[in-house]
Amino acid sequence: MNTSRGIGPNGQVKGTVLVVEDEQSMGLSLQIILSSVRVAVVKATRSEDAVSILRNAHFDAALLNINEPGMCGTDICRRLRRDSPRLPILMLGDSNDEDQVLKAFEARADDYIAKPFRHLELIARLDAAIRRGRLSNGYGAVLTVGDISLDVSRHLAKKKSHPIHLTPTEFKLLHFLMANLGKAIPHAKLLIHVWGPEYGSELEYLRTFVRNLRKKIEDDPAKPRYLLTEPHFGYRLNESA
């Protein structure tokens, strides 16, 4: 697995995309294109690796080669769709051949892009897929759990209608937990989603931010009712708080 983080002027990453491409030159080309528009890229050269990577990290979209060797592109698309029903998946093919396009959509890909593609077209279609995916996952909405509310589009957090000051990282952590309300999220998945793939083993880093977040959202941080610890596994936001 290789990672390139596209960072914009304000230090923010626009999104994280899983690229499954066995051809080294094409993989590098996609990495350069996406990094130039502040998209973090995680590359998998084998389809089999993509399944494992997706289990341990959150992605805003996936780019797959329909002609991937080993597990073919359509098979890996079906597998990713089964494991991540709302993940935007775009397939890259060698032609606009009707049969190949049909196979991509039958595998439940969201879009099909023929090579050679125009860079701006790829970026525009990927941006559109990411926006649709985020809307379907609650981005842009107001999420509420008990006394806590999160206005995602305005980047505002409140408790009992009073504003809570959250750092950008705390906001992202709370948002991910609220979007996965009631689910126990593994430590590694939280670290990779909030901080990036290279932070997957920084458990103490996560614990520090959880302690700080609890001070802001809990009535008694020592006895949390919202942000719960799943021992030796991860954290969960209590759906019945």
Rank of each mutant, 00 (worst) to 15 (best):
L150E: 02
D147R: 00
H175A: 07
L228F: 00
A157H: 01
S136W: 05
D219S: 10
E218K: 07
F176G: 04
G182P: 08
G133P: 03
A179K: 09
A129N: 07
M178E: 05
L156A: 08
K115Q: 13
L173I: 04
H155L: 10
N137E: 15
R134T: 02
L143R: 05
R154L: 02
L203G: 05
K172M: 04
K189H: 10
S201W: 05
R132Q: 10
A128Y: 01
T208Q: 14
R131G: 01
P116Q: 10
N137Q: 15
I148V: 15
P224D: 04
D127I: 00
V142M: 07
I113Q: 08
G140L: 09
G182I: 12
K160F: 08
D110S: 02
P163N: 10
V194L: 04
S201A: 13
H119W: 05
H165W: 04
V194H: 01
L177P: 04
K189R: 14
I185F: 08
L122H: 14
K158L: 06
T208F: 14
Y112M: 03
I192K: 09
P116K: 07
I130T: 06
I164H: 11
N137A: 13
K189N: 06
K172Y: 02
L190M: 05
T144D: 11
T167K: 11
H165I: 14
P163S: 13
H193D: 12
G182H: 10
G196S: 04
I123R: 03
I113G: 06
G196M: 03
G182D: 13
L166Q: 03
E106P: 01
A114Y: 00
T167A: 06
R211F: 03
P163L: 13
L173N: 08
R214G: 13
V194W: 01
D147H: 03
W195N: 01
L191P: 13
K115V: 10
V142C: 06
R207K: 15
L174W: 11
F176I: 04
